[in-house]
Amino acid sequence: MHTLERIELLDEVCKLFPETGFKGKEDLAALLELELKSLTALDEFFSYGYGKTKAIAPSQIYHVLAANTPIAGYQSLLLGLLLGSFNAVQCPKPVKNSLFRFVSSLPQKLQHKVELYDEFNINAFENSDCIVVFGQQKTIEYFKNLTPTHKRFIGHGHKVSLIWAGRVEEVNREKMALISRDISLYSQLGCLSPQSILIEENSSSEKIESFCQVLADSLRQDMSIQSQSLDIDELAAIKQHRDCAKALGWALWESSLLEPNPWTVILRKSPIFEPTCGYRTIYVDLIEKSKLEDWLKPIKGMISTVGVFEKMPENIISIFIESATSRFCPIGSMQQPAAFWHHDGRTRLQEMVRWVDWE
């Protein structure tokens, strides 16, 4: 099957699942041209330097998905199908139904290119020439050690996302609603979910308190998320973070844990980054600009996205880039990266293919 035919077949899937970031066949074609330099790079040799070259897709890709959100699985599988590879997908139980729905939506010609597995399948793994893994660092290291050096290995480990609000001059309710959306999607469990909002400490105490109160109001009123009840372990994690905040004397705004989709806003000053538990539990951290680099040290190399509330000073941008941040975006779009983003700062198709040159 040629590339153009696959693009046509995947067009409707992109429209059914806009959360992949691809609006349709135009985006798929553009990604191929951006990364592989030719729309037909997988089908035929094209001019390259003084000779010609051609991209060779993996015959089979083994995808290991994380349990927190199905979106990365949709995207990884979509890219594998775009390349024309067979896709063996190790799919944990929490996201299995979502992945099954995605696969069921595929045209018949593509459905036979996918196989879902509940657990590790040694035969499928050994028969794959490209391994793509999402998960915690220990999961990445485990599969990396299993992968022979002649096979391609692509690991996407745990990442952290933040919002830079800077100095609070005024509190805009529309912008706070956008922040609420970024926090609330996917129960705040994905790598693109903000864990902390950074405010300059020299903002007025009145403005800071107003910021937190309006954010709390926005989380309370957020109707963009599906109502869901948390299990006892998830509720216990939220309570632990709340109890810790109260013990340390940090200001806190909270809903009842008996409500669906509980939320928590915690105002703190901590010398370094400390993670949230997710489930709409957000920290508002007071930061001295001169100490931002030190505050980021625990997550240096692990920062995925920084949501920008207002214009960000160049020196602050530089600090985030030096800490290996791979994406900046406006608030409200943190969870919806563009089709052409560099996932974890890397290309998406180039890493999967190998090249054959003709001189």
Rank of each mutant, 00 (worst) to 15 (best):
R354Y: 05
S304N: 11
S205E: 14
P92K: 04
R6N: 07
D344K: 12
I316R: 05
S229L: 15
W355Q: 07
L110E: 09
T305H: 05
C191Y: 02
S304T: 07
E26G: 02
I331L: 10
F143H: 11
I316G: 08
E209V: 15
Y283G: 15
P330D: 14
L292Y: 05
I208F: 14
I287S: 11
Q75T: 06
S227L: 11
E200F: 04
V265K: 12
I319P: 03
S218A: 14
P70M: 05
E169L: 08
I197L: 12
P330A: 07
L32A: 15
Q60P: 01
M223Q: 09
S333C: 10
L192P: 10
N261I: 00
V114M: 01
K291H: 11
K109F: 05
Y283W: 14
R268V: 08
A67K: 09
T347Y: 14
L28C: 03
A236S: 15
E200C: 07
Q226V: 11
S270F: 15
S326E: 15
E12K: 12
Q108I: 13
S227C: 12
K93W: 04
G345D: 01
A216R: 09
L215M: 12
R354S: 13
N172C: 08
V114T: 03
L230W: 07
G166L: 02
P260E: 09
S187T: 03
Y50N: 08
S161G: 12
H342D: 09
I238E: 02
K37Q: 13
R6Y: 11
I131Y: 04
I179H: 03
S128N: 08
P194K: 08
T149A: 13
I272P: 00
S333E: 15
I154H: 06
S104L: 02
P18Q: 09
R167E: 13
I238S: 08
S204N: 13
G73H: 09
C91H: 14
L258V: 00
I317T: 14
D243K: 13
E119K: 05
S290M: 04
I183K: 01
L82K: 04
K96R: 00
A67N: 02
